[in-house]
């Protein structure tokens, strides 16, 4: 028989493993969503660069496909793995962030196309960074890395900003998602 100190240590060990498994499940689902958004925004920036007058329509399609895809991945991957409630809370938080972003960029501020192009990616990366405080450092690394590259592009990429964003924003999300799957 063991004493209460050893029993506490065993339970603590169990809790540690449970935490790791849950974090791993979150990473598996989140990485798929991040990779999907990486591909979508890459296509969006290239399409926006190629057909500039259709910018709003292009980004509306990208956002709708992305949101539908995120819900699909979270529902398919999350519910089956017992993380459905988490996915729904995360989605609600994401939608609140989007609403706040629209309020800031359209209602309060009157951002031009270049500012809008940079505001949304940086704003969504803030969401990733905050998520990282609870769910793991991988989110924070992806967010800070992407934000730094986006801000550099804003000041130095000139007329090639859309191409820069395709490479650094889309690319960072895809690479970040792939990296997250290896953790």
């Amino acid at each position: 028989m063991i004493d209460s100190r050893q029993a506490s240590a065993a339970l603590s060990d169990i809790n540690d493993v449970v935490h790791r498994v849950r974090q791993s499940q979150i990473y598996q689902i989140a990485s798929l969503i991040i990779i999907m958004w990486g591909v979508l925004v890459f296509v969006g920036y290239i399409a926006n660069y190629t057909w500039s007058p259709q910018g709003y329509a292009i980004w509306l399609v990208v956002d709708l496909v992305g949101i539908a895809g995120s819900i699909g991945i979270a529902a398919f991957g999350g519910v089956g793995r017992g993380a459905g409630a988490f996915a729904i809370r995360l989605l609600m938080a994401f939608l609140l962030f989007i609403a706040f972003g629209i309020f800031c960029s359209v209602v309060l501020g009157h951002f031009g196309p270049r500012q809008m192009l940079v505001f949304w990616p940086v704003f969504t990366m803030l969401f990733y960074a905050l998520a990282g405080l609870w769910f793991g450092y991988a989110f924070i690394v992806i967010a800070l890395g992407s934000t730094a590259l986006i801000v550099i592009g804003y000041f130095y990429a000139g007329p090639a900003l859309l191409l820069w964003m395709a490479a650094v924003h889309g690319g960072a999300l895809v690479l970040g998602g792939l990296w997250m799957r290896r953790i």
Binding site: A10, V18, R20, V21, S24, R81, G82
Partner: peptide
């Protein structure tokens, strides 16, 4: 009760019924 077997069972028990873990992932988690 053996420490590693306890960790293996804890990792598998937190998953939904009939859901398993790949060997490589289980190795990393434990």
């Amino acid at each position: 009760h053996q420490p590693l077997r306890l960790r293996i069972m804890a990792a598998l028990n937190v998953l939904p019924v009939a859901t398993g873990l790949e060997f490589a992932r289980l190795k990393k988690l434990t």
